[in-house]
Amino acid sequence: MTNHHDITCRELAEFIADYLDHTLPADIAREFDRHLAVCPSCVAYIESYKQTIRLGKAAFAQAEAPADASAPQAILNAVRAARKSAR
């Protein structure tokens, strides 16, 4: 429940990144916390925003493919060929 001088869900959504980086001015951060105390939707939104970041990092941490032993040599051969044809 918000009244006219409190921040809205829309305003809160704009500043989530700064809130999580702790770069919001203190008075606005306090309004943020006041809003979160009464708005389960924004709490769920922020939590899922944080989880989105974590999932993105995890998805690519795992994508470190097993080292392909032949890849460096293949790249070397391709670079050699490209340099030769450029000459």
């Binding site: 809205t8 869900c9 829309r10 305003e11 939707s41 769920a44 939104y45 939590e47 899922s48």
Partner: peptide, 9 residues
């Protein structure tokens, strides 16, 4: 200014 549909956990 409220969410159109509330965010779910």
């Amino acid at each position: 200014g409220h969410h159109r549909s509330p965010a779910r956990p």
